[in-house]
Design a protein around this nucleic acid. Structure first.
Lengths: 340, 340
DNA sequence: AAAATCGTCGTAAACGATTACATTAAAGCT
DNA sequence: AGCTTTAATGTAATCGTTTACGACGATTTT
C-alpha cells in the first residue's frame, strides 16, 4: 500500500510552512497567487489527497447519515431507499447503506460501523430476530438521532414512520367480504414481526365485525417467501380444505399460493380468490393480476429521512412522533367474485 | 448536539494522565486494577465513546470496504451483495453500500464518499450512463484496490468478474433454433451497456451460424424494464409482425412481453415462445414458467470480493485478470415448441 | 515623517487518541 | 545496606489538518 503525500511533504518540497500550504489549497485570500500556483502544482505532482480522518477530527462534520435495512431482495426496501436518497441528496448529505440480513448481531455490528464513520443520524428498519433496544437508546443518548421506519422498536422513544397495517388488513378483508366470499382464510406472516400481528389483527377484527366465525383453522402461517405460500396452499389442497378466498400476508406468499392453485388444476379467482399485500411489480404481470395493498414505499423513505433532517437541523429535541402513512388497495382480477 | 466525552475529561475527573486512561481502557497489563476500575466506571458515567476519527488517524486501518452498485430494485444486485457480504464478513471486514442510481455524477460522489471514509478497497458495478475512468484510475493509483463486476470499465486495468453473456446468449438462441422455431426475434437491452452488446452479438452469431437471416427488423430495443417489453410486444402485435419466438434481454422485458401476448388473446409458447435472461424469482411463478438464464449472482459476489481480499492481503500487485463465470439455462415451458 | 493599513507568511496550538520513553516508588536480591 | 527489578504512572511526541495570532516588510494615509 502506497503512502499518501501529506501537507508536510508539500511544505518541505516548497520550503514553506504547512499552514501556507493548507491555506493555498483552501484557496484563501491571504496567500499570494504565485504560491497558490506553486502549491497546487506540487500537490498535483505528489498526488496529494487530504486525509479525511484528520479533516474530520478538526471540523467534526461528516454530512453523512447511515441506513440499516434487513434486506433488499424484495422490492420494498429499495423503493424506500430511493425516497430516502432523494431527501438526503437534496439536503446535501451522503448516505451509507448497510444490510442486517435479519440478524440481530449483524444489525449491531452495522450500527457500530456507522457510528465509527461518524454518521450524524441513523435510519433503521429493525430485524425480525429481535430488538437491540439498549443500543438504539445509547445512540440517541450519545447525540445521534435515530428514526425508525416500517419495522420499529416498541420500546425506544424516537420518531417512527409506519403504515397502518391494521387498517389496511381490515379493508382488504372487508373487500373480500363485500365481494361475497364466504370462506375466507388468512396466510399469516412471521409471528414475531409486528406487521404480521397487525395484519392478522386487522383480518380478525374485520371478520368479527361481519359476524364471521374466526377459528385457528382459518389462519395458516405462511412466512414471507413464495415457497411458504406455495406449501401452505398445497397443504390446504391436500386436505381438501379449500377456502373461497385468502388474504395473504404479502405478495410473494400470494404468488406462491397462486402457483399451487394452478398446478392443482384449479382457477383463481373462480375457485380460490387471492389478495396480497405490499404491491410488487409482479402483481400486475401474473395471470390473473393480483389484488394487493400498495404501500407508499417512496413516501415512507421521504418521510423518515425528512424527520431525521428535522432533528438534525433543529437542535431542539422535538417530541418523538409516529407518522402513519396511508396506503391504497389495487383491486384486480384475483379477488373478483365471478359467481356473484 | 451533545458533546462527546474525551479521554481528557476522564483524566481530569480522576486527576490522572490521559495516557493512563487510554491504557486502562485498552486493558493493558501495566496499569493497576484499581485505576482500571476507576477509569472504567468514570468512562461509563460520562458515557465515553472513543472518537473513531482520532483512532483511525493513529492506526490507519478501517477494515472496511466500499461497494457501488447502480441500483438494487432488481433481484440481481441484492443477490450479488449477499455473496460479497459473506466473504467480507468471514474476513472480518465491514461493508459500506452505496447506490449510483445509474448516474455518473452520483457514482463519483459515492466513490468520494467511500474514499473519505477510508475504505481499504472498492467493489463496483458501473452505471450505464458512462465511465468515470479517470477516477477509477486515480483510486487505484492512490493505493485503493478496485474490483469491477458485472458492469466493468473497458479502459481501466483492474480485476473484473463477469459472466459470459455472449456465450449464454448464443446458447439461448441456439436452444430456440434447435427447438424448431423459425422466426426468432431479439429484444435488445440499453444500447450503451456492454452486456446488451454482448447478448446481441451472441444472438446474431448464433443466428448466422445456423444460416438464419439477420436483419435489423428482427431486433427491437426494449430496454430494461417490463413496461418496455410490454410496449415492444404490443407494437409487434399491432403491426401483425409476430415471431415464433423472442430472445429477450432480461426477465422483466420477457414478462412484459408475456403480458402483452396474453392480453392480445395469444398464447405462450403456442403463438410466441419466450426466453428471458438473468433468472428472477418470478420466472417460475408465471404461467407459463419462463425459460431463463440463471446467472450465478451469489458466486459473482463471492468471486469479486475474494479478488479484492487477495489484493488487500498480498501487498504484491497481482496482474489483473478477468474472471468469466458460467451460468446455466433453466428451460421451462415458455420456450417449448408444442407444434414440433 | 510617523502612523496606520495591507498583503503574505510562519508559529504554534488545537482536534482526540496512542505509545515510546522517562520517571518514581516499592519490592526483591546478594 | 546497596543494587537491581518490577509495577504504575506521567511526559511528550505523533498521526494530518486547520486556524487564531503574530511578525514582517511594503504601501498608503494624515
Amino acid at each position: 500500500m502506497k503512502k499518501y503525500a501529506t501537507l508536510k511533504d508539500i511544505a518541505k518540497a516548497l520550503n514553506i510552512s504547512t499552514a501556507t500550504v493548507s491555506r493555498a489549497l483552501a484557496d484563501r485570500w491571504d496567500v499570494s497567487c504565485e504560491t497558490k500556483k506553486l502549491v497546487q502544482e506540487e500537490a498535483k505532482r505528489q498526488n496529494y489527497r487530504p486525509n479525511p480522518m484528520a479533516t474530520r477530527l478538526q471540523n467534526k462534520r461528516t454530512k453523512t447519515i447511515g441506513l440499516v435495512v434487513p434486506e433488499f431482495k424484495s422490492a420494498f426496501f429499495p423503493n424506500v431507499i430511493s425516497g430516502i436518497q432523494k431527501v438526503i441528496d437534496d439536503a446535501g448529505y451522503n448516505l451509507l447503506i448497510t444490510q442486517s440480513q435479519e440478524s440481530k448481531e449483524i444489525e449491531e455490528k452495522n450500527l457500530k460501523l456507522l457510528e465509527s464513520n461518524m454518521v450524524e443520524g441513523i435510519l433503521i428498519s429493525i430485524t425480525r430476530e429481535g430488538e437491540n433496544d439498549e443500543y438504539y437508546q445509547r445512540l440517541i443518548d450519545s447525540g445521534i438521532p435515530v428514526v425508525f421506519f416500517n419495522r420499529v422498536s416498541s420500546k425506544v422513544d424516537a420518531p417512527k414512520v409506519i403504515i397502518d397495517d391494521y387498517r389496511l388488513a381490515f379493508f382488504a378483508t372487508e373487500h373480500l367480504i363485500y365481494n361475497g366470499f364466504k370462506k375466507i382464510y388468512h396466510f399469516e406472516g412471521p409471528v414475531n414481526l409486528s406487521v404480521s400481528k397487525e395484519r392478522k389483527r386487522g383480518f380478525i377484527d374485520a371478520m368479527k365485525k361481519h359476524h364471521r366465525e374466526v377459528s385457528e383453522k382459518i389462519i395458516h402461517t405462511a412466512g414471507v417467501f413464495s415457497e411458504k405460500g406455495y406449501i401452505a396452499m398445497q397443504n390446504l389442497i391436500a386436505k381438501n380444505d379449500l377456502p373461497d378466498a385468502i388474504f395473504c400476508f404479502n405478495d410473494p406468499t400470494a404468488l406462491g399460493a397462486l402457483k399451487a392453485i394452478k398446478e392443482a388444476g384449479l382457477k383463481c379467482p373462480d375457485d380460490v380468490a387471492l389478495v396480497g399485500f405490499s404491491e410488487t411489480e409482479i402483481a400486475q404481470l401474473v395471470e390473473p393480476p393480483l389484488t394487493s395493498i400498495e404501500q407508499p414505499t417512496f413516501e415512507i423513505g421521504v418521510t423518515a429521512a425528512s424527520l431525521l433532517m428535522e432533528q438534525l437541523n433543529d437542535c431542539v429535541v422535538t417530541p418523538s412522533r409516529t407518522v402513519k402513512l396511508i396506503a391504497k388497495m389495487n383491486i384486480r382480477k384475483s379477488s373478483i367474485n365471478i359467481k356473484k
